[in-house]
Design a protein around this nucleic acid. Structure first.
Lengths: 242, 242
DNA sequence: GTCTATAGAGCGATAGAC
DNA sequence: GTCTATCGCTCTATAGAC
């Protein structure tokens, strides 16, 4: 088990359990820094309080919004669900818009960071494809309410938030596009249109967080799903080795 | 072009253009019969008026709801968008609930009817798989706003409507499950788990109507998409012939 | 005792029912 | 057009950690 300088890809790279450890660290960092960055009238000093309350707030926003929509969520709903008073809530954000912005920003930060890191950690097109599929599924498993929220609320966004969301969406699709195109350039993948391919892969990844309940009912684990999706994709794109 | 007793599958079975002719007939029938069935206080006699106005109403409901959600749509919005007065509107349905019910009922009727018909028209597992994929895509292309609406509003439904929607969703997944399972039983398909397979196929079909704008921007036609999806699925499931 | 963090009534604006 | 319910948000007294 204990091993120095793990090979490439490292052991347990394709296991949800070990993925979660990495994620939890990132999440705290991002809570903290996103709160520091906005130099608003800040009266809260204790790091622990900030993280604890932000976690409650975001969790409650997602819970309520995923039931009845962000727009239909009142601040009183949020106060009730989170157990924080109206006054307390407004110490953590400057308004409903700001709250939405924070939520979106954090999801994008975590997702982008981890996807990039883990794809960069491997080298062959085949490994990159596998890493991208697994990591995306692990992320959406760990942060399912965020992913669901982001999808459902996307069409209600306006202005800068809308643009950022669209850009982020495009970037993650381009990531798969690039892997497929590189694989073809290296003669490792079959020459199927990588643009449509990237869309279809994303569609399959998306189903995991949009229909999370269905898969839970059927006791399908994220690792089982990832394995099936990867084999499906591999059969179509990856040329036989040797 | 003119041909007696077309073979199985008939010519132009896999072309969106010819599919549309079948659909337009079905749609009129269903408008008419769904309106006749509900023996409410009916003051409208002329068939032409009924179809014309129901089409306006449903079109408007979908347009507004797909922008801001069905719940957020007021009857005033609908009156404005459809060009019908509040009084006129209430000749066609008894309230917002009833309107929703009619909309859902019609989508289910058309979808179920055409899917069944067209799958029954072919016999081999391979043809059935192809017919199911193409027909589902053609349906969601022709009725994109309906499909989008149904997906987005699903979580806001209650009671009997919710149950019917869930049942319909399950039925269409089972349809793909059965095709895959039959194919395996006949030794025509590889033995990959048909349950997960049905889910993944549905996920890819779903992307067509959820991201319709994206594919339009890229000038991907429904026939191109259908071809790609089918080849993708075929590679994984269908055994080489001979 | 000091000061951070919270409580929750209250304000003005507004959207929807009638 | 009116009227009410509810919205986002603010204000300031005070509870409680140190």
């Amino acid at each position: 088990m204990i091993q120095n300088r793990p090979p490439n890809p490292p052991e347990a790279f394709f296991s949800f359990e070990s993925f979660m450890q990495t994620l939890n660290l990132s999440k705290q960092d991002i809570y903290q820094s996103s709160f520091d960055e906005k130099q608003q009238v800040r009266r809260i000093r204790k790091k622990k309080t900030i993280i604890k309350n932000l976690d409650r707030i975001f969790g409650s926003v997602l819970k309520i919004s995923n039931k009845k929509g962000f727009k239909a969520m009142s601040m009183r709903d949020l106060s009730l669900e989170s157990g924080l008073s109206m006054g307390a809530l407004y110490n953590y954000f400057s308004g409903k818009d700001d709250l939405l912005e924070m939520l979106q920003h954090q999801q994008r930060s975590i997702t982008g960071k981890l996807l990039e890191e883990r794809i960069a950690a491997v080298s062959s097109p085949r490994d990159k494809l596998k890493a991208a599929i697994y990591t995306h599924l692990y992320l959406s498993e760990a942060l399912q309410p965020w992913f669901y929220f982001s999808f459902m609320e996307a069409k209600n966004l306006t202005g800068a938030e809308k643009e950022k969301t669209v850009a982020s969406e495009r970037a993650s699709e381009k990531l798969f596009f690039d892997i497929l195109a590189d694989g073809q350039a290296q003669d490792a993948f079959h020459p199927h249109d990588p643009r449509l391919g990237a869309s279809l892969i994303k569609a399959m990844l998306q189903d995991w967080y949009l229909k999370r309940g269905k898969y839970a009912t059927r006791s399908v684990s994220v690792d089982q799903y990832a394995d099936y999706v990867y084999r499906f994709v591999e059969t179509f794109y990856v040329k036989a080795e040797g």
